[in-house]
Amino acid sequence: MTPVLSVRGLTTVLHLADGPVEVVKDVSFEIGEGETVALVGESGSGKSMTMLSVMGLHPQPTAEIVRGEVVLGDVDLVGADERYRRSVRGSAMAMVYQDPMTSLNPLMRIGAQIEEVLTAHGTPRRTAEQRVLEVLADVGIPQPARAARAFPHEFSGGMRQRVVIAMAIALRPALLIADEPTTALDVTIQQQIIALVRRLQAETGTAVMWITHDLGVVARVASRLLVMYAGHLVETGPTRGVFAQPEHPYTAGLIGAIPPVRGAERAPLRQIPGAPPDAAHAPAGCPFHPRCPEAVQRCEQDMPPLTQREVSAAACWVPPSEWVA
C-alpha cells in the first residue's frame, strides 16, 4: 500500500545567533491510508517543529529544512514550490491546532471562514455554501444554518474546536494533522472530540497524525506511535506492542510515570530525573543519557541509530534484556 505521507531523513535547523542548530534530526516515518499515528513528545522534543516542517509552515527564515523529503501522495513537498504547497495545504492535508483561535478569525462569521477555505481551493460559491452546512452538521454542531452566521466568540472551546475540524475536513483531506487538539479542553469534551475524529475517520478514510504529550490519548486513538526526544525519533512501533514492551528507556519511563485512573494498587511513580532538554541544546551522544537509568559509557558519545527490535524500532544501545531499572 502506498503511504499517504512519507517522511524521509527530515532535518530542520533553527538559525540562532550563535549558528544553526538541528531541532529535527533525521526523522523518518510513514502514515498509511486511514491510519492514526501518534507523535509523542514533551516540551522541546521537536514534535511540533516536525509537523510544521511537514506542512511547510515552519517559521522561515529562522527555521530551515536542510535535508530530507516530505512526500505527500507522490510529490516531495520540500522540493516543490510554495504555490504547490499552498494548494495541498487545506485540501490534501489539513491541520487542527491546540487553540482553535489559531485557526479562526475572530471578526469573521463561522460560515464565511469555512466557505473561504473551500472557494480558495476552487469550489464554486454556490456549492461551497451548501458544503458549509454539511460539514457543520458532520462535526455535530447543532443548527448549522444558525451556527454559520455566528462569530467564534459565541461558541465554547469545545464547539470552536469542532468548527476548526469542520474547516479541516471540508475538502476531504487524505491527511489530518492534529496538534494537541484536545489539550486545552476538559476531559469530557476531549472525549467528544476524540469520538468525533474517530467517526469522521471511519466515514472518510482520512489518515490522522495526532500530536500529543498524553499517553492516555495515544492509547485511545493511535494504532502506531512515534516517540520523539530532543529532536530524535527514539522509538516507533505498534501502540499495543510498545505499551506492553517498550524498547527505549525513555518510553518505559513515560509509561511508568502515569498513575492509573482505576483498578491498580497505588505505588510510587516511576521517576525520570531532570527535565527534557531543548532540542537546540541537547547533550552529546544519546540526548537522553543524562536522565537514563540504563546509560553506559558509549551513550555519552554516540547517538544510537533507530534499530528494529522485537516489537518496535528503538534508538538505544542497551537492549531491554540488559536493563537494570
Partner: peptide, 17 residues
Amino acid sequence: AVPVADPGIEAAREIEP
C-alpha cells in the same frame, strides 16, 4: 472520559461520550 495509558483497555472500550 479519561483515556487510560493501556491500549488493551482502550481498544476494548465502547466510548459513549
